[in-house]
Design a protein around this nucleic acid. Structure first.
Lengths: 338, 338
DNA sequence: CGACGATGGTGTATCGATATACCAGGACGT
DNA sequence: ACGTCCTGGTATATCGATACACCATCGTCG
């Protein structure tokens, strides 16, 4: 591997001059610059980023830490973040926390965090206390809906409102018994994880419509995923529970629900209406196309990067934490009636 | 930030002893080790990975470079690789090449590659000449189906055979006119990108069955994706083309085809059979469930990591490049007849 | 009793780039 | 003629951890 001093020697200048050329700093004469660039091209020199990072601190890299690569939801998010960052000449790497406490904590070790200029952290699977214990110097913006330490910047989506919109739509288009698939029985305050907050919105829609929210229609899923959702719908039908609407807490769950309903010979939306949450890329191509809550990812990503850049610019100085809740919007498609 | 010498001073030992403790090296007495560990815990010390990397070379991190995060296919791959790596105490980061030459080349700069112990590189979008120009010291394993420089290890899936299986199945279950959606008109040799090779398999199935492969049934897609596939099916129907089977070159394309067929009021599999390729997580949950070619990701990942580890172990020494073609398997589901 | 091998530990150079201070020489104003 | 500023450039310490060579005890064995 050629180093800067190899280049310096070959060009007959000091390493510092090479460094200045490489980084486009001004204190170099035009002629010298050209000579150095020639030598660099000839030797195929490239800067050693580890050395630069050690010395200069800067990495020009932002990390997005997600619970797992297999969730389509995060793939979508990652793609958006990457596009935004590239416009500022920076670079995204995605790591996975593993959706387990251990994995996410490992990804969160100060050691690892220090490798990046900033970190966007999806907090699924983390306890509040874990996050509180974190004493990272690296700028962090949290993505998620949990009740999180106030000292962090935090971009959340409006779970309660999204769930309310979804449920209200079904109630207003003729559904009487709307299941929440992937909800949480103990949901109360509007704080907490995704399942509880979305359950609160489901309940709020019932209150508004003057209906009682039947607790038996709250179907919990231990790991809200597609396969489990399909099974849950099968169980629901087998148990003889009466329902004519499903609010699936995520689109992934909705995909499973759609399959489960088809298994049971129930027609969508005629027998059962269905609304998801996330507006995944695949959702509009399902048959019938999935009505879903769009989480406004573009706004979330823009805001998250704004907050991150603000902290990076502050360079460790004090910054007042912000909490931002993105707008949500119901996307009407084929799994609901007009 | 606390450094190793802070710890050393506080514990009354040398930095080297702290380093030995941190890395679990033997030359440390039990009592001293405990004292150092105490101080580490107290000061909240964590090793600076940049410094370690600079000095020691090792990073314990493998990169997977994919064309884009939004392709579900790669999310699946990434999840598998991450799981495998974690079992060996290493760590995965995912970067995106951008599916454009520029992006992928940027991700490929020697500078960036040197940040990892090894790199798995999905070569979609790269020209052979770009890869040839690459003079990286970092171990690289290529994932993809292109005609690639022989000096690289290369894990491909059996595109020709997969496409042949898919097409043959439809031909043997009553389809007479099988469209290849996302194929390539000039496909010939069996080498090249995904579209050409899968087209070769499609043609091979026709040859075997003693049928003529009608070139008008090769539908090209400039960007093989879901939305474009849906449009293409609409165009196909509008043009009055007769067909009763579709081999979609990827599951993402198949999802679009399924939507397009539904739009056109065609029943699957009664009017048109459909087979995809990739066996995405979502495919079994489609309605009807998608018959597809399973690319044997588990084998691909295992082999790719084996090849990578072999190179990492060789530590820059000479290694004979291998080319591995994983097995494929047809997964029968609801979009085809028995 | 002296050599010798474990055991436990230290000092120093080094990885490759960057920050800082400093220097030579020419232009320029007064 | 002299101080001052600007331009173009260099020498050196440093970021934080690790590799290597070396050293001090101490028990023990011939």
């Amino acid at each position: 591997m050629t180093t800067m001093s190899d280049v310096a020697r070959a060009a007959g200048v000091s390493v510092m001059t090479v460094s200045n050329v490489v980084n486009g700093r001004p204190r170099v004469g035009a002629e010298t610059r050209l000579r150095v660039l020639d030598v660099i091209a000839e030797l195929g020199y490239e800067v050693n980023l580890n050395a630069r990072r050690l010395r200069a601190g800067r990495t020009d890299t932002v990390a997005l830490i997600v619970p797992g690569f297999e969730h389509m939801y995060f793939a979508d998010l990652a793609a958006r973040v990457a596009r935004s960052l590239e416009q500022t000449g920076r670079h995204l790497v995605v790591e996975r926390g593993g959706a387990s406490r251990e994995g996410e904590l490992a990804a969160l070790s100060l050691a690892r965090l220090r490798m990046y200029d900033g970190v966007l952290l999806s907090v699924v699977g983390l306890e509040r206390s874990d996050i509180d214990r974190l004493r990272a110097a690296t700028p962090i913006v949290l993505l998620g809906e949990r009740d999180l330490p106030k000292r962090y910047d935090h971009v959340a989506m409006d779970n309660v409102e999204g769930a309310r919109l979804a449920t209200a739509h079904m109630l207003s288009t003729g559904s009487r018994d709307v299941v929440i698939l992937g909800g949480s029985a103990q949901a109360a305050t509007g704080e907490g994880g995704m399942a509880p907050t979305r359950t609160v919105g489901w309940r709020a829609a019932h209150d508004e419509a003057g209906r009682a929210a039947d607790p038996r229609l709250v179907v919990e899923l231990t790991h809200p995923g597609t396969a489990e959702a399909r099974r849950a719908v099968a169980d629901l039908v087998a148990s003889g529970t009466v329902f004519d609407g499903i609010f699936a807490v995520t689109d992934a769950v909705a995909v499973g629900a759609l399959a489960g309903l088809a298994d049971a010979g129930l027609r969508v939306p005629d027998d059962v209406q269905l609304v998801g949450f996330d507006n995944l890329a695949v959702s509009e191509f399902l048959v019938p196309a999935l009505t879903t809550v769009d989480p406004g990812h573009d706004v979330m990503v823009r805001e998250a990067l704004r907050l991150l850049d603000r902290r990076i610019a502050a360079d460790g100085g004090p910054v007042i934490a912000e909490r931002i809740v993105g707008p949500v919007r119901l996307v009407h498609r084929g799994t609901t009636r007009r």
